[in-house]
């Protein structure tokens, strides 16, 4: 455990990206991410909150941002010029996803299956394949008080979650602290959301489901080589196995948020627990101390490496 300072001094600023993730859904990622963003701002930091849970984004419910710009996000899919097409079939051969096929003289595309690898366009000897943009979702940018707010929203029926997350992350700049709200799970959308961040907070709850999914998430962040710590939400609701696991694996527990009906009530109506519940401030103050020390430690490591 790191030593704790008593007073938060705003010195974490500039270029630190924290991802708030969890294997299991519904453990309190968004609660932690939104309240952390708000608390950091109160402590004098410049903060950007980026909602990368683009399938079910909920950060706006708590941060109530004033949106100033909305961007349509598109990906390129093939558009075949049938006048130029010689029906050679090369496009269908290179496509691994069944998104373009050539049956006799007919080339057909199946846009929902396309991964936008551009293979068909590159391989076409007749130069008959162009790009066509299709919308996969939207990114809204605005301000929630002093917090810079960015959120992605996937179009219903679309599967290009990682592509949209990538675009949300382009809004990260190196002049503030970025907080990324990560989708649940451990597969491609999560990988896209946490890749390249400085630190990951894994939010879990002390239950068998929470522990099982935490282990998967730990496996993922370890494979990606990212520094991380665990946050236990609804502490007291279940058993001790999550804490025992963290101890045996030498994983820091950065914060324990107690199981409290008041927190659940504030959350249920879309309120911010750091604003409405005094006892929560103490926990977030501890989390900030922890992150400050973690950042120091990382900088130390980096200096040594250079």
């Amino acid at each position: 455990m790191f030593s704790r300072t008593l007073v938060w001094v705003p010195e974490m600023s500039d270029n630190f990206t924290i991802a708030v993730a969890s294997g299991k859904g519904g453990t309190g990622k968004t609660t932690i991410a939104a309240n952390l963003a708000s608390y950091l701002t109160e402590a004098g930091e410049n903060v950007r909150y980026l909602d990368c849970d683009v399938e079910e984004p909920n950060g706006h419910i708590f941060l109530k941002a004033n949106i100033t710009t909305v961007e349509n996000i598109t990906v390129d899919v093939p558009q075949v010029d049938l006048d130029k097409c010689t029906a050679c079939g090369k496009c269908g051969e290179i496509c691994q996803f069944g998104a373009i096929v050539c049956i006799k003289e007919h080339v057909m595309t199946f846009e929902p299956l396309c991964h936008s690898c551009g293979g068909c366009r590159r391989i076409c000897p007749a130069d008959a394949i162009g790009k066509k943009p299709v919308e996969i979702g939207r990114i809204s940018v605005g301000k929630a008080g002093k917090i810079d707010f960015v959120t992605g929203k996937l179009r219903i029926g679309n599967v290009r979650t990682p592509s949209l997350i990538k675009q949300v992350k382009k809004h990260i700049t190196d002049d503030c602290i970025s907080i990324i709200d990560v989708p649940p799970g451990t597969s491609c959308p999560v990988v896209e959301a946490i890749r390249g961040v400085d630190f990951v907070l894994l939010v879990t709850e002390p239950t068998p489901f929470g522990l099982n999914d935490l282990k998967l998430a730990v496996g993922l962040v370890r494979q990606l080589g990212l520094p991380f710590a665990v946050i236990i939400n609804r502490h007291g609701i279940g058993d001790e196995r999550v804490e025992q696991y963290c101890q045996s694996e030498d994983i820091d527990i950065a914060m324990k948020l107690p199981d409290d009906r008041k927190i659940a009530e504030v959350y249920s109506s879309g309120g911010m627990i750091v604003d409405l519940l005094h006892q929560c401030k103490k926990h977030f103050a501890e989390l900030l101390d922890y992150l400050e020390c973690a950042k120091e430690k990382l900088n130390e490591k980096r200096r040594l490496r250079i």
Binding site: E55, E56, G157, N158, V159, T161, P184, P189
Partner: peptide
């Protein structure tokens, strides 16, 4: 099923 509205849910 899984959470979300993306590829595994579809």
């Amino acid at each position: 099923g899984s959470p979300g509205i993306g590829c595994p849910v579809i």
